[in-house]
Design a protein around this nucleic acid. Structure first.
Length: 816
DNA sequence: CTAGGGTTAG
């Protein structure tokens, strides 16, 4: 059932809702389906009332009744106008087609009707017909047809119309010119648009708004804001369209101050309560700027709300991490029943379920979506994929993905990262290959999702391949891509390649710095990490909470205890970063690893918040490292007390580990239990040989070369013993005879992978093995002997860091 | 006016 504390999602039982039906407005469809095709009734008594505007009740029966085709031209015109003003575009068109020689203004009305709500291509077609039938377009025609071009994003067509405008000498007309500015803006020709705009002798508010909206549309947030400032300087007062155009840009730029001044302007004009568009846009800005209280105030004060308003407030709650409020708002909306959910609403709700790992609620939503006809909506479908993945349900995500009718780049991105989040790296890479086969173009987000798959595998060949993809697609200058590449190369043991990417970046963000600092950290190069931190401060970029986690962990792995302590205090004092539990885990780890067990314990006791299993787990592994059994047992008991209920097996397993002195295994069990649900992943090691990844689990005999691998290990064991190696059987979990323990140790996954490396690679090639968990202590010792015997260089990346073994020594100096 | 997938940490 639902997690305690999480709100239960309310979903109506039998609600059926078809988005398609709402959009077309059924009666129009029915009418045109009757097939009366302009057979008109000479409803003379009623024709008097035609043209008064907007009375559709009068207009409809006229066309529906059978009558003669010999309609009076003036009646046709009146009827046409009537339909146009009622918004009955299709009916207006029927009448229009009946006219013998429509006058210019009738062409204009018809084109305008299409340019208003589409279909835009009809407006353009009609314009062409108009020109071909010898009717000269006038200054009213051009703005309408240009608007249709903007809607269709047909630059070529727009250019043709531009040259026609020049030929008939209408380029100085403010309306025509404004429409051209808008068309070029929307079609992405910002230079041409700006050129025309600057040349205009008189710019009205519509022209200014076109510039503002265009900049906002193309993600040029700063320019959009600047245009609004410019227009006020030249004495043009913004209107509600300006506000609605600029607010999304302000929101994207998270420019809270600008948002507030626009808000103030709206209050002066009395817009924010009565204008739905303004109110909605405003509350969205506050949501994006993380000011949910203001967003809510605006929402509460609005006298008119539409479905977009509800979507916006729900989305704002979700992005401000108020999931309960988001679900509450959704329930309220459904109960009030004035507004139906739309795909953005549902996408936000699914995001909320994902964040809460509220699988039951998510499933309920899925059921509702199936009933209500939303399940074919690609955005909703993608949100569902993500929800299932984030709730740890990879199978349902993959199942859903395979059943999707259409998949776009986002669908692939969602499923690839979903597989990755659930630890299925192979499947992620597999789907990436299918994506390429399906000719779906990967974009930045896809590649940012794929590159970490290579980092997890530590498969540098795959990684280089992804790097190649990125270059070919021209994405190699993207900051996020570079960040992912830095991380990938660092985790694949190529710290210098990582540094190279970092050094070549034109622009870096804090994640770039964090990635390279973390890279040095896992390589045990703490001094380098610290020196990068100093460079970071010179750039003027602010380090964030993650930076300090990277730094503290780097210090911890390099034994830089004094530096770590200084960083921790500087973090709060000089950088105003509130320590999170993660920082405390690093500190306990740092102190504990360094042997300051009492200090670590004091640190936990003085933490400003309640300690959790992970903090004690860090201390427990320190107890294991320094063989402090007494404190270790004490800590084990605390962990047992903290452990959540219903995890009996974990408690038991943890006890076995602890009783046998396997404190770090016990800690790992606890951490896994806490973080990943209730599954403990088995120790697994792998090695990439000529682009193929070979994976081994302990005692594995499934590899085709298993026999020879075992032979190699057997021979090595004999040699190692001659050099003084003694198996450390305290690392064996099972309660078996000593000899059996030695046997089990010999076939640990990391040893198997190394033996396979020896078998497959020539003597001069370094061996690079990756393990999902932390390296076993006996293996760590054994590998040192193996480097002496085989004269090979061996690198091992485990869950925490790198170990470079050479000539019987490890780069970590046994400090791990 | 609202909206789906992504990078850094332990």
């Amino acid at each position: 059932m639902a997690n305690p504390g999480n709100p239960v999602l309310w979903v109506p039982e039998n609600l059926v809702f078809s988005p398609a039906r709402r959009k077309t407005g059924g009666d129009l469809e029915l009418l045109s389906g009757v097939g009366t095709c302009g057979r008109l009734l000479e409803a003379c008594d009623r024709s008097e009332r035609l043209g008064e505007g907007g009375d559709e009740d009068v207009a409809q029966p006229i066309v529906l009744k059978n009558g003669t085709d010999s309609a009076d031209p003036s009646l046709l015109e009146k009827l046409f106008c009537q339909y146009v003003s009622c918004g009955k575009v299709e009916l207006a068109r029927l009448v229009f087609d009946k006219m013998q020689r429509p006058r210019v203004f009738l062409w204009n009305s018809m084109i305008r009707a299409y340019s208003w709500n589409g279909p835009f291509h009809r407006a353009v077609d009609l314009f062409r017909r108009m020109v071909n039938s010898g009717v000269a377009p006038n200054k009213f025609t051009f703005p309408f047809v240009l608007k249709a071009c903007s809607g269709l994003l047909v630059l070529q067509c727009g250019k043709e119309i531009h040259s026609r405008v020049m030929r008939v000498g209408l380029h100085a007309d403010v309306f025509v010119c404004t429409a051209l500015v808008d068309m070029y803006m929307k079609c992405g020709r910002l230079d041409e648009s700006r050129r025309l705009f600057v040349k205009m002798s008189h710019r009205d508010i519509v022209a200014w708004n076109a510039m503002v909206a265009g900049c906002a549309l193309h993600g040029m947030h700063g320019d959009a804001i600047d245009f609004v400032l410019d227009m006020t300087r030249t004495g043009v007062t913004p209107n509600s369209s300006t506000v609605v155009a600029v607010l999304p840009a302000i929101g994207e730029a998270k420019a809270l101050t600008h948002g507030k001044s626009v808000h103030a302007f709206c209050v002066r004009k009395g817009l924010e309560k009565v204008d739905v568009l303004v109110g909605t846009a405003l509350l969205d800005v506050y949501g994006k700027c993380n000011h949910i209280d203001y967003a809510q105030k605006i929402f509460d004060a609005m006298t008119v709300r539409n479905e977009v308003t509800w979507s916006a407030i729900i989305g704002a709650y979700v992005s401000c991490d108020h999931m309960a409020k988001a679900l509450e708002a959704f329930n309220q909306m459904m109960l009030e029943g004035h507004q139906q959910p739309t795909s953005p609403t549902l996408a936000s709700i699914l995001r909320a379920c994902a964040r809460l790992t509220e699988l039951n609620g998510g499933r309920q939503m899925h059921g509702y979506l199936l009933k209500s006809g939303f399940s074919s909506d690609i955005m909703v479908g993608n949100s569902l994929l993500s929800m299932y993945s984030k709730c740890g349900n990879a199978e349902d995500a993959v199942g859903l993905f395979s059943k999707m009718e259409t998949r776009d780049t986002v669908s692939y991105g969602a499923i690839i990262s979903g597989c990755l989040q659930n630890g299925n790296v192979q499947e992620a890479l597999h789907i990436f290959r299918k994506m390429q086969a399906s000719r779906t173009e990967p974009d930045v987000a896809t590649m940012v999702g794929v590159i970490p798959a290579c980092s997890h595998l530590a498969a540098v060949q795959h990684g280089r391949c992804s790097h190649g993809h990125v270059i070919v697609r021209g994405l190699s200058s993207d900051i996020s891509i570079c960040n992912a590449l830095i991380d990938m190369y660092a985790k694949c043991g190529r710290i210098n390649d990582a540094r190279d990417i970092f050094d070549r970046m034109v622009k870096r963000d804090v994640v770039s710095w964090n990635a390279i600092i973390s890279g040095y950290g896992i390589h045990g190069l703490g001094k380098e990490a610290l020196s990068l931190f100093h460079s970071l401060q010179i750039t003027g970029l602010n380090p964030d909470d993650v930076t300090f986690i990277c730094l503290l962990s780097a210090c911890s792995h390099s034994g830089l205890i004094k530096e770590g302590k200084e960083l921790f205090s500087a973090m709060t004092k000089s950088f105003n970063i509130v320590p999170r539990i993660e920082h405390c885990i690093c500190m306990v780890d740092l102190l504990g690893r360094g042997g300051h067990l009492d200090e670590a314990q004091d640190f936990i006791k003085n933490m400003p918040f309640a300690s959790d299993v992970c903090v004690w787990g860090a201390l427990l592994s320190a107890c294991r490292l320094h063989k402090n059994l007494q404190l270790g047992e004490e800590v084990s008991r605390i962990i047992q007390k903290l452990g959540p209920e219903g995890t009996g097996n974990f408690v038991l397993l943890s006890n076995i580990y602890s009783a046998a002195g396997k404190f770090d295994e016990a800690a790992i069990v606890r951490i896994h239990q806490k973080r990943k649900g209730f599954k403990k992943s088995p120790g697994c090691s792998w090695i990439e040989i000529r682009g193929k990844v070979h994976a081994f689990i302990g005692g594995d005999q499934s590899h085709p070369d298993s026999l020879r691998i075992h032979e190699i290990l057997g021979d090595l064991f004999v040699e190692m013993q001659k050099l003084g190696y003694k198996a450390n059987t305290s690392y064996v979990l099972q309660n078996v005879e000593e000899e059996e323990k030695e046997h089990l140790l010999l076939y640990h996954s990391e040893k198997l992978a190394i033996a396979f490396g020896i078998l497959s690679l020539s003597g001069s090639q370094p061996i690079f093995v990756t393990k999902n968990l932390r390296v076993c202590g006996d293996c760590h010792n054994a590998i040192k002997f193996i480097t002496t015997i085989t004269k090979r260089e061996i690198s091992l990346r485990d869950a925490n860091r790198f170990h470079h073994f050479i000539d019987g020594n490890c780069s970590c100096g046994d400090f791990w």
